[in-house]
Amino acid sequence: MLPFAQTYFVKPALPESEAFVAVEQSGRRLAILTEGYTEPVTGKTASSVLRYRPEEVVALIDSTQAGRTTQELLGVGGNTPVVATLAECKGANGLMIGIAPSGGRIPPAWKAIILDALNQGMDVVSGLHEFISNDPAFVAAAAKGGGKIIDVRKNDEHEVAHRLNIREECLRIHTVGQDCCVGKMLAAIELTNAVKARGVDAKFVASGQTGIMIEGDGVPIDCVVADFVNGAIEKQILAHQHHEMLFIEGQGSLVHPKYSAVTLGLLHGCAPHGMVMCYEAARPAMHGMEYIELTPLAKLVEVYEVMANLMGPSKVIGVAMNSRLLNNEQAEAEREKVRKELGVPVCDVIRHGSDELVEAVFALRAERAKAR
């Protein structure tokens, strides 16, 4: 196995005692591997990197879709080509695993492509639960070729939460969800970018592998030992609370049988002042467990607020609706229905923009300032 220091570098945080793990991004030119999985849900890592760091992507590798563009298949990336082989990715110095499948295993057919990249001296960036750096063949190829293996989910988090020295003047907004894969990361990034555009010093706090790949730092919360989940995200809060606002990426859902433990630890560890509820309109059932009905949004708002308020005052201030399955007319009807049902702003941050939610964030900040 590669030594930890070879897999990651440690970026100094503020204060110095709170260092955090970051992913090197300088000079990246990426080939993104999505072979056979080039669609928005399983391929969400590829989609998100193409949306927020398109200048770093040379091509997508998927022999089943070669000749098309990422815009056609994923709705992002413009004319970024989809090619059949690694050899066609001219100028790439890194291979990124572009999928986030349930269970996080490496598709067996991909191992030859990963080995080829390492033999060529390319870095390999993976957010899967199955670590590239645990395979002796990959480690040997990296040592020979001179590239780095970057297992984004690998971590050494070992601190519990303490709830000390947290600066309340730094507003903490957390995206939470009705289900997994509904757009919690995207909503958090869009809100961060939107308030920055209005002159606010804000920071996106990544809690998953794709967010870390985009932002360059964060914590892979679903791969942290259970006792340390709350402490791991608290460490991120402490490291970044010199900003005016933090937008903390959510994971899973409190009502998802597979992921609820991670969701709750993240919620309690970041102790948000406000939450943005995220959901996908027209989703028929729970992702990956289609035999389970989705919990109604009104009930979920109640549940999230009860659980969040165990740590401190918190409330849902708005809803980020993922309306990709709807046309414009259907999306507007859905938006109005949820507005009336929940009494908070509702928008699809891609289709409608994020202004309504930004106003809700500013209103919460003003409310808290007045209370202080």
Rank of each mutant, 00 (worst) to 15 (best):
V319Y: 00
L300E: 02
T295W: 12
A333M: 04
V301K: 04
L310T: 15
L325F: 12
K299W: 07
V303K: 02
L326V: 01
V303I: 12
A308T: 15
Y304M: 06
G288D: 12
T295M: 13
L325W: 08
H287K: 08
E334Y: 09
M311T: 15
G318V: 01
R324M: 10
Q330P: 08
H287P: 03
A308N: 14
N327G: 13
I317C: 04
A331Y: 04
K315F: 06
E293N: 12
V301L: 03
E293F: 01
P284W: 10
P313V: 04
Y291I: 01
A285H: 14
P284C: 06
M286A: 10
T295F: 12
A333D: 11
K315S: 09
R283F: 09
G318I: 04
V306G: 06
G312H: 07
L310P: 07
R324V: 09
E305I: 02
Y304T: 01
L300H: 05
N328M: 03
K299E: 13
V316G: 02
K315I: 05
P284I: 05
V316L: 06
A285Y: 13
Y304N: 00
V303P: 06
A282M: 11
A308D: 14
A282R: 11
R283V: 04
N327C: 10
N322G: 04
A282G: 08
R324P: 00
I317Q: 03
A282V: 07
M311A: 15
S323A: 14
I292M: 12
E290M: 01
A298T: 03
N309V: 01
V306S: 09
V306R: 13
A298W: 01
I292S: 05
M321S: 08
M307W: 15
S314N: 14
A282I: 02
L294G: 10
I317H: 03
A285M: 10
E290Q: 10
M289Q: 12
E305R: 01
E293H: 08
N328W: 02
E334S: 10
G312V: 09
A333C: 00
S323Q: 09
E293V: 00
E334V: 00
K299F: 06
E302G: 01
N322D: 05
K299G: 09
L300I: 03
Y304L: 03
G318R: 01
L300F: 04
N322T: 03
M289N: 06
E305L: 00
E334M: 03
L326R: 01
M321Q: 09
P296Y: 13
A331S: 14
A331H: 10
Y304I: 02
L294D: 12
E305C: 04
V306L: 13
E332R: 03
Y291L: 02
N309C: 14
L310Q: 15
M307T: 14
E290F: 01
H287G: 10
G288Y: 12
G318W: 03
E332S: 00
E305D: 07
N309K: 10
M307Y: 15
A331N: 05
T295I: 10
T295C: 12
A308S: 15
L294P: 08
R283L: 14
M321C: 08
S323R: 04
Q330T: 09
T295R: 10
